[in-house]
Nucleic acid binder design. Structure first.
Lengths: 191, 191
DNA sequence: CGGTCTCTTGACGGAGTTCAAAGCTAGTGG
DNA sequence: CCACTAGCTTTGAACTCCGTCAAGAGACCG
């Protein structure tokens, strides 16, 4: 029914096709147009989202009114404002589609019921969060270790297709500097 | 037997005293002197650690030979090189005791056996990692949003006892700037 | 086409780094 | 219990990376 999600779940736990069908009942398929928002600051984050097609980004708006992207999610990644999702308090982030995107939404209530009814999914999500946490630790280390210029070149080498799908100014914002400076870096590396 | 850990587990799942006693069997109590290392770069991270007394820090050494602290753990926090712990590959971080410290170590094998035998612990760890992940997201946002000076003042207000337990140069390294600059910030705020 | 969104350029300024040296502080051994 | 040393913090000057601002050049979409 949802082959991408099924494959992803099966890399962490083994679940029969019958149980899998039940599990899928908790999810809702959702389609988003480019630039459409899934979550706005001030709302509670109602669901956690698994991307099956396209790209989501999470961002916030700083005191100067500038958007800061903190995370991207492409196919096979989960995305949510974790804190708001857990506690159902007002979100500090926005979630927006970078291109036309399809997601599987697991609403907060369904999430709890799913984990209650299917203990294997506790393990699945434990693994998912463990990896996500490990990934942010690596990212934090990398940020500390390298200059903005090095960051960009590393990103460019390790995620080449990504660069072509996402506008420059979002890359700059994600890497933590201005579009103007990114432009300067690119100019240097051409000549 | 381990009241701090018991209380912590019980905030997420309810477990009988009998089962709890079994669970504790998987842990090993360990004592560390100030500056003693629990993990060195290049080793695999053998266990995940729950701090019952004292402070641990996680750090790495950058290309200039300078130590960069990326995380602290005080009482009631878990600490590990998550990536190395999961995959048993060589660690990228060091873990060191900031003061004389006591931990409960859950070795990698015991971790898997524990989760197998006690499904409630899957939920517990799912919640722990979910929160840890949410916390790093908040931290990332905060770093983007504020100057180094603001970072320090916020830290100072929200963790006053912590400042007295940890030397300045570790605080500076954790917040992402140099001890010299921290000194300058402090000078400003006194006058 | 015409307008909006995105990327580039260059001048200037400031936050934070680097380096080197001196002043403190706390722990250690005699 | 004092003296010594190693580790920690402070100072100041020079420097650099990167942000800000403002304006122009492309590029994409209806």
């Amino acid at each position: 029914m949802y082959p991408l999600l099924q494959a992803h779940i099966n890399t962490f736990v083994s679940i029969s096709d019958d149980e899998m069908a039940e599990i899928f009942g908790y999810f809702k398929h959702q389609t988003l147009k480019k630039k459409e928002n899934l979550l706005n600051e001030g709302q509670a984050c109602k669901a956690t989202y698994f991307v099956t097609k396209g790209i989501l980004r999470k961002y916030f708006i700083n005191e100067k009114g500038v958007e800061q992207t903190t995370e991207f999610a492409i196919e096979n990644w989960w995305m949510t404002d974790t804190f708001s999702f857990i506690s159902q308090t007002t979100a500090e982030f926005y979630i927006q589609a970078v291109e036309n995107t399809e997601v599987l939404a697991l609403p907060r209530d369904a999430h709890d019921q799913l984990l209650e009814a299917h203990p294997a999914m506790e393990k699945y999500f434990r693994c998912v969060y463990q990896r996500a946490y490990a990934a942010t630790q690596k990212r934090l280390k990398f940020r500390h270790e390298h200059s903005s210029e090095e960051l960009y070149h590393f990103f460019r080498k390790s995620q080449p297709e990504f660069l072509q799908r996402v506008p420059q100014y979002l890359i700059a914002s994600y890497l933590g500097f201005t579009p103007e400076y990114l432009s300067e870096i690119r100019k240097k590396s051409i000549s």
